[in-house]
Simulated assay, not measured.
Amino acid sequence: MTTVSWRQRLADNGQATGVCVILLALVCLGLIRYDNFGSAYNLSSFLNYNAMFVLISLGMCLVIITGGIDLSVGTVAALSSVTAAYVSPYGLVPALLAGLATGLAAGLVNAVMITRLHIPPFIATLASLLAAKGTALIISGNQTVPVDWASGFTRLGMESIGGLLPWSFAITLVVGAGLWWLLEQRPIGRTMLAVGDNEEAAHLMGLPARKAKTLAYLISGGCAGLAGVFLASGFGAGQPLEGLGWELTAIAAVVVGGTLLTGGKGSLVATLIGALMLGLIFNLLNFENGLGTFNLSAYWQMVIRGAFLFVVIAIQVQITRTRNTG
């Protein structure tokens, strides 16, 4: 048992190291090729924008570790941004709590459907995706909802610590550290891994499998809700039409980080690095557009993201087959 655990930990560290090496290589490429790539403005803007995607990727990682999926994170973030915008006249903290509560409520609905009603995660979260999207459009009147600029709510998404580290990303790092502690140091984290590996065996062992899955979906919803708060604060308005495809970005980051789509194995650290790597690829493409080498619209970026996800999953499937037959 000790040898297997040691090998597993070494493999996980190797995955995180590999993703980190790619990230550093992309950073070096950007610093060499583009004049303003290393500027404080670009770094702060990059971290501020990608804080949302890092958050939903971390939540998605826990869900996938349990063997599930959460397709609702993007539209839940959009709904939470609308909720936070409506509450923003009452101040930063009430708006933040409103957005977070919206995400947690969506996560609880997903958890109940999956753990109590035994609806497959794909179907349950797809239903939540549609419901959240419709609710956001109804309460916003299919319009962006402006925030109250005088309440200080926009400071969360527009200001930085020392002009370099955005508050949104600093909070994301704190959330990430807490989730890492939960997964790696607490019994409930080991239960999540056990559920993803073999849920029936986890039940027979007396592990709180239902509690672990419920917590995973609650965290995923909470992360999406907080991402929605960052969205409203950073753009100055609730965005009911945002969130399309965010779930694919999160899944891609999780898979790039080495988490198995079948569950039972995953790394939050590698997921965080994977999310930043994906964000950096599109940051580099934007700089390349500025040079006039080519001109890729946002639609082409969606195509690239989908193709990238397909390639990564195909590689993961092949590696899994090789290990199972080896």
Rank of each mutant, 00 (worst) to 15 (best):
T259M: 08
E247A: 11
V256L: 15
P240A: 09
L231Q: 12
G264T: 10
G257R: 04
S220T: 04
V256D: 13
G263N: 13
I251F: 04
G263E: 10
L260V: 12
V254T: 09
F230R: 00
E242G: 11
A250W: 10
G234P: 05
G245D: 12
S267H: 07
G234F: 02
L260A: 15
L218M: 10
S233E: 07
E242S: 14
G263S: 11
A216W: 05
G228D: 01
A224K: 04
G225I: 00
A252L: 15
A216H: 00
V255A: 01
V255R: 03
G266Y: 08
L248W: 13
A252S: 15
L226F: 07
T262W: 14
Q239C: 09
A232P: 10
V255K: 03
A250V: 00
G263Q: 13
G222R: 06
G225D: 03
L241T: 14
A270I: 10
G257P: 06
L231F: 09
L231A: 11
A216V: 07
L244F: 12
A237Y: 08
A253T: 02
V229A: 03
V256Q: 12
L231G: 02
L215A: 11
A216T: 07
A227S: 13
G234I: 02
T249G: 12
A237P: 09
G234M: 11
Q239R: 14
G243K: 05
I219H: 02
E247K: 11
G234W: 03
E247H: 07
L215S: 07
L261T: 12
L244D: 13
G258T: 10
F235E: 01
T249Q: 14
S267A: 05
L215V: 06
C223T: 08
A270W: 08
V256H: 12
L241E: 13
F230Y: 13
G234H: 07
A253I: 01
G264F: 13
G222H: 05
L226A: 00
I219R: 02
L226M: 08
A270R: 06
G238L: 01
